[in-house]
Amino acid sequence: MTVTKLAVFALVSLIFLVIIKKHSPSISVVSEVAVVVIFIIGILPDLKALLESLRSIGDSFVSSDVFKIMFKAFGVLTVGGVASDICRDNGENALAGVLEIVVKVIAISCAIPIFTAVLTTALALLEQ
């Protein structure tokens, strides 16, 4: 999808969501989620192409495990961030805050093997 199409779709969706919110707030939440999912599906091919090209360039220099961990953490943070924003749009700040903390914990837990390796090396050096 081109930038113009995305911008037009976002503006049109915004207008519809504002109108729907006035009449039925519960349906507006569902509509908001649907619009976000449509956006993500729309940019999915471009995102896939970007990841593939980065992976093909990076494979010769960086281990694929490092790539996987970083992109997994990025994906978790992005999805969690979008969900927490939807909660904030609908006035649920506490829910958004908790969701952000949980997402950060999950993202950091993706990198637990790396943290463990770094701390183990540091402790082994201190023991020597």
């Binding site: 943070l77 969690g80 993202a107 790396i114 390796a117």
Partner: peptide, 17 residues
């Protein structure tokens, strides 16, 4: 990213590793 500090933490740990 929505949380740049977390990404920086993970990236720095990858480099250290």
């Amino acid at each position: 990213s929505r949380s740049p500090e977390t990404v920086t933490l993970i990236g720095s740990s990858c480099v250290a590793c």
